[in-house]
Nucleic acid binder design. Sequence first.
DNA 1: AATGATCTTGGGAGCGCTCCCATTTCGGGG
DNA 2: CCCCGAAATGGGAGCGCTCCCAAGATCATT
Lengths: 339, 339
Amino acid sequence: MTDNLTLEDIARLAGVSRSTVSRVINEQESVSDEVRQRVRQVISETDFRPNQAARTLVTRRTYVIGLVIPRSTSTFFADPYFPRLTMGIAEACNRANYSLSLYLFHTEEDEKRLFPRITRKGLVDGIIIQATQAADVLFTQIAKSDVPYVVAGRPLNAPNVSYVDVDNVAGAHNAVRHLIRLGRRKIAHIAGPRDTTVGLDRIEGYCKALSESGLAIDENLTAECDFTEEGGYYSARRLLAQKPDAIFVGADMMAIGAMRAVREAGLRVPKDIAIVSFDDLPPATLSNPPLTTVRQPIRRLGLKLVETLLDIIENGPTPPRRVIFDTELVIRESCGERR
Amino acid sequence: MTDNLTLEDIARLAGVSRSTVSRVINEQESVSDEVRQRVRQVISETDFRPNQAARTLVTRRTYVIGLVIPRSTSTFFADPYFPRLTMGIAEACNRANYSLSLYLFHTEEDEKRLFPRITRKGLVDGIIIQATQAADVLFTQIAKSDVPYVVAGRPLNAPNVSYVDVDNVAGAHNAVRHLIRLGRRKIAHIAGPRDTTVGLDRIEGYCKALSESGLAIDENLTAECDFTEEGGYYSARRLLAQKPDAIFVGADMMAIGAMRAVREAGLRVPKDIAIVSFDDLPPATLSNPPLTTVRQPIRRLGLKLVETLLDIIENGPTPPRRVIFDTELVIRESCGERR
DNA sequence: AATGATCTTGGGAGCGCTCCCATTTCGGGG
DNA sequence: CCCCGAAATGGGAGCGCTCCCAAGATCATT
């Protein structure tokens, strides 16, 4: 068990040549049944495992894909979004017999030091990279290293790039329209950072719904913050001064924070203030009241990212692939009834 | 940029030999400053990256460690525990210049098919594996493949194995003692599965605290379930029939569920029923009321796991390393005041 | 000026695999 | 019974690197 067997050893034991053993392992046709069986026997008896590095050296394939999560990780993993996405990606990798390497960057220094390692040949066959403002620097590096890659979420300043995203504009639009339909007229928005497309797109959907219904867009009704519970809390406190009758919040975690602020102000959800948010992660069901929220198909996002990346690995990066998933408004209690 | 440079190419461009370039890259001493600089220049001009597979083939080191999360992943990533642990592990990997490969198994079939791949030579230098009942089968496999490994959490039936865990017995003991100190006398327990050491150890701590204080141990006051919010909810509903005045819950997520059940029964936390739980994950702060809970040093757990694994890789698996971290009771509102 | 000792450099060998081409084996038709 | 094409098998070359040993350069010492 502690030995270091090679193809040659197996060949000797089975009384055949190295090439034949290789053929058996790689399930190629032209091997007689009798020989194939004998070799298989020896392989299982010796518990032989071919050396992956040697294979990679000649085939130029590692069967590993990298998942890169740029800086601001701290925010990331506090949010259940990323674990979910990771699960979807891992599931697809398992299915395709790929390994998944996780690169969580904590600091800019991490990125500077580690990123070149990733794009080194022989480490990964391709990369899935999360779109963030911090990622923008990495895009140029990654592009020039010609490692195949695909972006999770729409990148901000990167044309000709393949990505998989959800339709944030339509999702937000739909959510706000729902609030309007229910009779709310002074709808505030707690937005994600404006230097992310997620933040921008949801603002766009929000504005679109307002103007379609002839409602004024008031700059003071939009607050911008990061995707944390804390951020939502403080943003809501600020917005409450404007006396809105509803808030469209750009993420579930922020909505949890916002509801805390509303409660502390002595107001009630949904009676005084209706709330609709985005994501539909577990906290949305558990909160009190449960959140009406725009569901993202996170698992499918993960699966599609892997599928797209493998396609790019196989067939090259042109033309850029773009996949946009639809969202679905899940109605619970935080938005209230029609007035 | 699209070329496939080798050491030999760099050597030619710099007017030196392959060996010298190798020395420069591996930061070995005996290279004159002038030559070193010239080679570095060429490397950065050409953006050369050495081929990792070729290196691995000769050095027998991949600089990759694998994180294996056995089946029941679905539970895992719904719980913020694993993302946190993963972050700690990733941080330590970054620091040590290792890559982290994530193996999330969803089904038993995954394990059967994928696990042999992982223990294949040339894929990882070592493995961190989460202790679960499902992991037990894997231990034997992993052990006989002689890939270095370390277990996260105390494994159930595995002597001579290295692991890193927190002191679950002491943590639970301390939590329950706190409830007793506050004047509670009929303390129920919602336990994790009895086929995990986490479940068992916390039960042990619970019983220990009761008997120390001369309180009877009533089987009907302990409910067992998985680590989910739902599980906590239904367990609490069952336990409420016994009219306890406190519940020690084996995990924050279950405590959230338990509080929901208590609320629905028209009782109040902590007035009617005091609650103390285990983990101190973000939901513990966000819940209403905030949870008194036993804090686990999850990040440190992750760092130590990597440190231990690297030690084993370097110096061999004997003697087995065992690290047990202390926990800390974080007092918030769910346990109430002294009666 | 010659001699070691030390520092620097070059090239061969080999890691374990896949791929290609050459060779052997086999079976059926003339 | 021989010949030829197809199927099965073997072995060389080479992937890009590290490691080792030998050779060349450099310098102080006698």
